[in-house]
């Protein structure tokens, strides 16, 4: 609670700064793509959101695992706080993808493997959040949602491959390769630099919300303990 409180304003400021500058750069000061026209500007939202949607689930997985093994309350509360943010990221990725798809593919929605996987990921987030909300006892809820997150991660991976098998897809390959130097071949620097900045922005925003959310959950648990103590006395 100590270090996170001191770090929070800095992380929040960095998040706001990089997100704003990345998006403004992307929106106002990048050229249009030859084939895609101005719709290329949607990638400054779509790609970072998609990245954080997956990282969010990964984070929940790790949080759940640490809780089940080491019984660290903070880690499961972080997983709980990450879920709604991850869900919103998934929603943004889906919505921007659909809007981009309309002029490019001629339809808002195609049952493309990547879009379908994200829709399924969205359902996994929903299930996790619904299970948290349904169980009254906090420790029981922490345990059961963690078990669900672990099993869900396995099945989310499975779904990913199942969906690939099911339909080879329209979605263009991953535009941004993370390997150093490789990006020049894939996507030119004009697009890449603001994209990198907005990815950092989304990541820092996620971290900010994660810190706020986890601190809130910790406080809320403490509040519940105090309330229970009051009832006992």
């Amino acid at each position: 609670m100590g270090w996170s409180g001191r770090a929070l304003p800095w992380v929040a400021a960095a998040a706001g700064l990089s997100l704003c500058s990345g998006l403004i750069w992307g929106y106002f000061f990048t050229p249009d793509d030859i084939r895609q026209g101005s719709t290329v500007k949607i990638i400054y939202l779509h790609v970072p959101a998609a990245l954080m949607a997956i990282n969010g689930y990964l984070l929940m997985f790790v949080g759940a695992l640490v809780w089940l093994i080491r019984r660290q309350h903070v880690s499961v509360l972080a997983a709980k706080a990450a879920a709604p943010v991850g869900m919103v990221m998934t929603l943004i990725a889906l919505a921007t993808g659909a809007i981009w798809g309309q002029p490019m593919w001629g339809t808002y929605w195609v049952w493309d493997p990547r879009l379908t996987s994200f829709l399924i990921l969205f359902l996994f987030y929903l299930g996790y959040i619904a299970l948290w909300a349904a169980i009254e006892n906090e420790d029981t809820a922490a345990d059961l949602t963690s078990v669900l997150a672990l099993v869900g991660a396995v099945f989310a991976m499975l779904s990913r491959y199942a969906v690939l098998f099911w339909n080879q897809g329209l979605h263009q390959g991953t535009t941004v390769t993370m390997a150093d130097g490789a990006q020049q071949d894939n996507i030119s620097n004009v697009f890449f630099q603001p994209l990198l900045l907005s990815m950092a922005g989304f990541g820092l925003l996620f971290l900010t919300l994660l810190l706020i959310g986890t601190r809130t959950e910790v406080r809320s648990r403490r509040l519940k303990v105090l309330q229970a103590r009051e009832r006992m006395e």
């Binding site: 929106y27 101005s38 949607i42 919505a95 921007t96 809007i99 981009w100 309309q102």
Partner: peptide, 16 residues
């Protein structure tokens, strides 16, 4: 100048 895709780009940014 967002050209003919102005609606798509702007609505993406607004919604997100």
């Amino acid at each position: 100048d967002l050209g003919k895709y102005a609606l798509e780009v702007n609505s993406s940014y607004v919604l997100s």
